[in-house]
Structures are given as C-alpha cells and as structure tokens.
Design a protein around this nucleic acid. Sequence first.
DNA 1: TATGAATGAGTCTTCATTCAT
DNA 2: CATGAATGAAGACTCATTCAT
Lengths: 187, 187, 187, 187
Amino acid sequence: MSKKQDIMTATLDLIHEEGLQSVTFAKLFKRANVGSGTIYNYFANKEDLVNEVYKESRNQMGEYLLQGYDAEASLYERFKCLQMNRLRFGMHFPKRFLFIDSYSFSPYIARELRSAEDSYNSSQVVQDLIIEGQRQGVIKEMDSHLCHQLVHGIISSILKGYYVEKYPLNELQIQQIIEASWKAILV
Amino acid sequence: MSKKQDIMTATLDLIHEEGLQSVTFAKLFKRANVGSGTIYNYFANKEDLVNEVYKESRNQMGEYLLQGYDAEASLYERFKCLQMNRLRFGMHFPKRFLFIDSYSFSPYIARELRSAEDSYNSSQVVQDLIIEGQRQGVIKEMDSHLCHQLVHGIISSILKGYYVEKYPLNELQIQQIIEASWKAILV
Amino acid sequence: MSKKQDIMTATLDLIHEEGLQSVTFAKLFKRANVGSGTIYNYFANKEDLVNEVYKESRNQMGEYLLQGYDAEASLYERFKCLQMNRLRFGMHFPKRFLFIDSYSFSPYIARELRSAEDSYNSSQVVQDLIIEGQRQGVIKEMDSHLCHQLVHGIISSILKGYYVEKYPLNELQIQQIIEASWKAILV
Amino acid sequence: MSKKQDIMTATLDLIHEEGLQSVTFAKLFKRANVGSGTIYNYFANKEDLVNEVYKESRNQMGEYLLQGYDAEASLYERFKCLQMNRLRFGMHFPKRFLFIDSYSFSPYIARELRSAEDSYNSSQVVQDLIIEGQRQGVIKEMDSHLCHQLVHGIISSILKGYYVEKYPLNELQIQQIIEASWKAILV
DNA sequence: TATGAATGAGTCTTCATTCAT
DNA sequence: CATGAATGAAGACTCATTCAT
C-alpha cells in the first residue's frame, strides 16, 4: 500500500508544481522513490494513475465538505457549514482543490469520473438545500443548478486569488465571503 | 499576416478541443494548413506561440469588457455593463474565455503575462469602480482585490456550467446573475 | 517435476499460438499457473527454457520416428515406416513439429542443439537406409545428406499445407505422399 | 526513396542475421544510417516495416520465378523452368528466400499478405501446370494443392540444407533435384 | 521450493526543432 | 517566406530477472 500511495502523492505534487502536461514518468519515479516499472504494478498507465488521483481527491473533498453538517440546523447554518467547509478544504489542501478544479472539465479525466458524484453525495446535499430554501421563499427562484454553480464558483474563485496571494484569508474575510455568497442568492 | 493568424487560430481551436497537453505541432500544421517549418518564422517555439495566443485573447477580452462603458453612468449601471460584457464575452467566445480561465493560474503561461494588464486596463476600471462604491458606502468594505475576484468568479463559474449545458442562459438568467453578483457585494 | 513440465508445456503452447517472439514470461506464468520466480528454479533464463523445450521435442520426435521400425524388413518397408512415422508425428503433434521445423535453422536455438542428434539416432537410421539403398542400386546415387533432406522436406512441406487446411490428409493422400517421396529418389 | 530502401535493406539483413525477434530499432538505425525518427516517415511502425519487406520479397520472388518461362514449351520444360527458377532464387537471394519461408506462417505477418498472391501470379502458373499435366495423364492424380506443396517443399527443404552447408549445390545436384521432384509426381 | 513485488535496462514511438531547397 | 524530410532527445511502457519472505 505504501508504494502505491507514494506514487499517488508524488503525482499530485508534480501536477501542482508543474502542471499535468509536464508530469513525466522520469520525474515521477525520482520523486516517489520507486523503480520505473513499479507504477505498472498498480496502474495500467499514466492516464489511469491520474484518474485514480482525481477520484481519491474527489472523495476526500466530498467527505470534508460534510464535516460537522447538522441536518437539523437552520437553513443558513447549514449553508454556512457547507461553504465554510469548501473554503477550508481549499485552504488546507490547495493541491487537491486546484487539481479537481482544473481538470474537472478536462478531456484527460474520464467523463464518467468528472460527472460522477463523490461517494458522500455532498453535491446532492447542496442541491437539496437550495431547493428547500426556494420552497421556503428564502432563496431566490432560479435554476437550482445555476444557483449551485454560483455559490460554488464564488469559493473557487476566491481561493484561486488566495493561492497567488492577492489577499489574505483570515476569519474576517471568510465571514465576508460566506455572507456575500448568501446574500447573492437571497430573494 | 494570414499564415500567422491561421496558426494562432488553429492553436486556440486545438487547445479547446483536446487540451493544451495534446496539442502537437503535427496536428497544428495540418489544421492550419502550413508547413512544419513555417511556425518558426513567427514564433520562437511552442511556449511562445501559446503565450502569444494567451496575450491576444486577454487583449480581445479586455476590449470587449469595456464595450459601451459609460464613465458617467450610475455606479450600478457601470457595474452591470462590466458584468454583462464579461458574461457575453464568455458566451460568444467560449474558446478564448476558457483558455484564459484555465491557464491564468497555470505554470505554462509566463508569470509576467498572467498578472499583466491587458492593453485596455479593464481590470483597473473594475478595481476603481469597487473602490468608488466603497467610498460611497454602497459596496461593502472589504479587500478590493477580494471583492473584484468575487464578482469575476461568479461569472466564470456560471459560464463553465453553461458550457457543459447544465442550464440555459437567456435574458432571465442573465438578469438573475447580474443581480446576484451585485447583491453579493452590497453593504 | 510437475511444475517444470507445466512450464514447458505452456511454453510450447504459447509459441504455437503467438510465435516465439511474443512469448513473454508474464504470459507464461499465467498460463502455467506458477509464480514468476519459479521458472528460475528450473531454467537459467528464457533462452535456456526454449532450448530445453526444443531438446525435449527433438527427443520425442526421434522416439516416435522409430516406432515399429523393423531392421529386418525390406528397404521399402523400412523407408515407408520412417516416412509414415514422420508424417503421423506431424499430424498428431503439430505444435512440436512446427516448433522443431521453424527453429531448427533459427539463431535462437543453440547451434550445438540444432545439429545434435536426438538420443534415438533416428537421423542416423535414415542416413544408413539411404546409403544401403544406393549400394543396392535401388536409390539413386547422390549426396546422401541431400537425399535425406529431400525426403524429409517433402513431409515437412506437406504438413505445413495440412496445418493451414489447404487439403485433407487421409489414407489415400498419405499413400500418395509416401509413394511420391519414394519415387523421387529411385534410380 | 534512398532512405526508405536503406531501411528495408537493413531490416532484411538483420532478420537474416539474428532473427526477427532480435531486430531492434536501435540496431536498425545504426545499420541503415538514419535517425531514429526517420523510419516513421515511411512506416507506421515496426510491424508495418516488416510487412513491407515481406511484400517486396514476395514480389521479387514472384517475378524471378517466371523468368524465361515459355508457355509454349513442353510440360517438362516448363516444370523444369519453374523449379530451377525457385532453386536459383533461393541460392541467389538466401535472405529473401528464408524470410519468406520462415514467416509465411507466422502471426507477425498480416494474414492477407501471407495468403496473397504476388503480383506475378506465379503461384497460379504452377497450379495450372499441374492440372494440365494431370489432364494429359502425365502427372499423378492427386489434390493439386498437395502436389503443388510437394514440389515447392522439395526445393525449400533442399535450400535450407544448402544454407547450412550440408552439401554443395552445383549443376549436377541441381539436375538431380529437378529430376527427383519431377519423378515424385509422375504417374 | 514457491512466490510475486520491485526493479531498471531496454524497447518502441513521439514530437519539437533544424536546415537544405 | 514557405516547405517538409530528417533528426535525436525524451517520452511512455515492457519484461526478464532478482530477492526477501
């Protein structure tokens, strides 16, 4: 298990540092400290390896997104929890977040993986929350997918600016962002 | 001039269709209908070519963003114009928009190009508008770069969902999006 | 002993199905149901393994060729027996026959094995028969090796056509072939 | 045209010297004095290259076999011409002959090439000759494909012995072989 | 003995780049 | 300017072989 994980970790690191296109096997072997043939004991080829890393990342994020989620809490509390989790995940796991964000629309990732739910159904939870809010007359009536995309997009975009150090993200900013994304979709 | 433009157009097309990593010169020559050596009359190498296409795209977008911009109009009118322009640009030029969006944080594009202003200073216009709004007490006090990123991010994200046909974008949706992005940053 | 034989059988099968050049150890282990290291308990390397299979095949054919050979029988009877045995061996053991035929002149098989007699000296028996026939004035005077090669060659060639189902080989055809090969070398 | 021919010649040489399985591109480039990528300007891959060489060899042999063939000559004269040509071709072009002989039943050569006629239809000429002889009551009644295979096989086999210097082949031996192959199929 | 994960030299192949025309 | 045949460094991938268990 260790070798396999070494390889996947090295892959993610290299993608983050130089981009997927310049992840060569030579760099990978050196970084992961394995022999060049070892990868093929675990992955069919390079594409398979990258897709495995993608799947793992999606699942990890999916789990993280639902941390501390209380289905009984108020609508806003739940919304806040989901947005905070997303933001915090991005802040703590920049490599994974950027990888997911960059390649979710890339032809390199198998179509079935891109559209696939993670195993935690975090996406469905967000979707349900929006629809519930609309029924209550709290959230503005609009296509729920569009609304979903909108609140996600705010976090993604903010994170990308954060990564290149356009601004800091401490508690104050985080509160402002959550609030802004909430106001954006209110009636 | 024609050959050069042929090459750049083919480059953008191929990046859109298959992703930067699988754009080979062989495909490029075939698509652009030029000989394999011709490229080196115009570009130093592949990276240079891609960066030229990036620069061209940024300038084209920068110009588009300021279309019909009236510096004398009301704050909201100006905000709306900028957001509409961005959204419309993305809808009319999906290849260029996606290319810019995907590679603005990629190591493949030279750092100085990524942070560079386009020749129309559209970025500065947005920045100024935010600061003006904050001075007037209309726009919430927060880091102006963060605020800028936030309103941009909403548009980018919405467009990506649109490209994969998650939802339609007609006048109703467009109004909702502009409104949402405005409400997000109000005090 | 079983494991060793499993490996050798699998080797012959694979050579027959895909040709020597595409017999990889990976395929071999799977087919023979042994671990990848097991082979090295019995064979020094791949070449050694193939040469062992060659040697085994030669011996098996050598034994078969002399089945029912009666040194006291008439010249023609003995000739017929040898030719029939060769033909029947080829019909019953196509894998072994083809392997021997294909690699007897191949650089892959050690030179000393190619020219080596099998342990039954079947080759010498044929040779002696020819010389005896020439002394009796029945078989035409010619280089005995050439004559030997000639009668062998007829059988080999006929078998190859049979394998690709150019024609059937039942008793009638077999008689015709034996007869033809006999007439070919008569004075 | 020169580079392509250089590559094909080197390929045939290497196959002859070391066998198809050990023809590596590294050896090929060195021998043919071309850069490693050059092959791919002419051949899709290694298999394609080998098949091209096979096709060329078949055609060359096909042409050779009909040299001096006089359709008006006597049955025996025509038979003799065909057999002599085959034998002489093998003596003058051992590499081509052995390559054809070794790989005509190999899975490495495309099935359609193996069964394909050469462009000179030499195979058909032989076939027709046999049937004509049988109609005249000169050649023994038997499956014409079997008869064809038989007379071919004699030559092939004799040549293989010749290549490993089992015996010389000068005019005397040649006459004996032709005669033997003729007697083999007479009534 | 038997195993199979790990290895890395070696394989085929791709592709940006050069240069003579 | 425009071309494309030729190149070879670098890429992904294979596979016989080793060795700790």
